[in-house]
Amino acid sequence: MKKCLKCGIRTNIYIPQHRLALCPEHYINWFEARTQRTIEEFKMFQKTDRILVAVSGGKDSLSLWNVLVKLGYEADGLHINLGISEYSEISEIKTRNFAQRIGRKLHIVDLGRDFGRTIPQIKENERRPPCSFCGTLKRYYMNLYAREYGYNVLATAHNLDDEVSVLMLNTLSWNIEYLSRQFPVLPEENGFARKVKPFCKMSEKEAAMYAVLAQIDYIEDECPFAEGSTTLHYKKLISQLEEKSPGTKLRFYSEFLSKMYPVIKDRRPKTSINRCKSCGEPTQSEICMICRMRNNLLYGKLQTSTDKADNP
């Protein structure tokens, strides 16, 4: 059995990529301190900023919210109920309970009520896969709530495995445009709030262990639409590399940020941003994608073929 590096007691908790054994108490401290270091490294935000955390009710987002509040940041939550049967019901309950536990404000968007259609209902009329329009809707409401309620930072719980799988995907196709946006902090611009990913250097397993040790009650079920996703496939592949040589994921990601990102960051296409004529949110078109989606759903109009992702 290994011994905790800090206090010497026997422990099972070992992080191979950092060659680090820690007892539960010191693991929690380490995880929180590492998040703080990441926040500072990328100058994500400060104690004076007002942060809105996207919370799904899963282990990563509840852990992130917990860590930020414990570190003394002004962080409230935004939960979007997607209307995906039992999965969404349980997610909302767990998120509400957690908000109560930490005593922070929680905003709730109910897609069925606020957008007029749930994800399964939209799916019936959409050509795109659910995760595609689901992502668009989530980004839209996050930005909308940030502006309406005066938050200047949007935090999401994307972890190292999320970032590495996307990085791998974008690298395999040398998608310079996407790569040039893959940075854990994107400044406020064109009416979009600043976006940050404080868990970008924490692996999925590290976040899950934190959730267990900090006794966070999260939803364990996966969204039914996640099954068979490309991300999942890549994560499993990358995990095999990591198993053979621990530290591969962190190296691939960190070296990208320090060596490759500076070279390509100015390749971000400059786009002109308008205000949606219907809802006032930023968009590249006259009417934003969300309003177009809503119109299509409610009035059954044909979708235009020039649909473009609105949000950088």
Partner: peptide
């Protein structure tokens, strides 16, 4: 795989 999964017994993470 142990790279992304682990076991918990009575709140304690197992090796």
């Amino acid at each position: 795989s142990g790279e992304y999964a682990f076991a918990v017994r009575n709140g304690e993470i197992l090796d």
